[in-house]
Design a binder for these strands. Structure first.
Lengths: 109, 109
DNA sequence: GGCACTACTATGTGCTACTATGTACCAGTA
DNA sequence: TACTGGTACATAGTAGCACATAGTAGTGCC
């Protein structure tokens, strides 16, 4: 991963994961895989799990344990009402930022 | 400042400041003021100065001292060739991120 | 038995933005 | 004179995040 991407992901990765969960429930390993499919090839597994622990502790997601055919049981996360509110705020903040940056980028030519 | 914004600015604020400098040279206090005009009302002065020290140390900007009518002399920063390359990378990384997030946002409805 | 894949957990590090505080210089004003 | 407010820069300490690394543990295949 580039250093720029690493820094830029701070703050946004959380929103990305919550957005993924808003589409449908998922477990950690699955989320990591989906991120890779999306092109975030360098995101460390540990990062995703740590993030999930955080959002769980903050009460943004609900958790259920499901047995897995392979390996240890899965912790399936789903976005709850608080999480949805938080995600809405995230999108607002994101829109503000993109607005300013587009402005700057266009001003540059 | 919202907590989300604070985290999201990590990695992007640097790009924003470099983008400002790519339009024209500026000094710290001026940059802070321009950020406030842009709507980033909560960005601390200290943050901007620390950031400028960083980018100077990394050789992304050139510095000149100019006397000021008021207060201590100004340190005027201007983006050099290395900085311009770095900024170009920043825009690429940014475009990648916005692409993925737009995709997610649209998939959400 | 060794390897690859699934699935989660834990520790320590580096980087960044924030808060808070301080220095210093000048202009206006009561 | 003393005080306030604006200009201009600097720094020490804190919190949060992504990373690297390592470990546990089960399954299936050759």
């Amino acid at each position: 991963m580039g250093k720029q991407m690493t820094e830029m992901l701070k703050g946004t990765l959380e929103g990305i994961v919550l957005a993924i969960l808003s589409l449908r429930s998922a477990y950690g390993y699955e989320i990591t895989a989906r991120l890779r499919e999306m092109g975030f090839s360098g995101i460390a597994e540990g990062t995703v799990y740590a993030l999930l622990v955080r959002v769980e502790r903050r009460g943004l997601v609900d958790v259920e344990k499901h047995p897995s055919e392979k390996g240890p049981p899965r912790k399936v996360y789903s976005l709850n009402a608080t999480g949805q509110e938080y995600l809405a705020e995230f999108w607002e903040t994101w829109r503000f930022l993109t607005g300013r940056l587009e402005q700057l980028h266009e001003g540059g030519r």
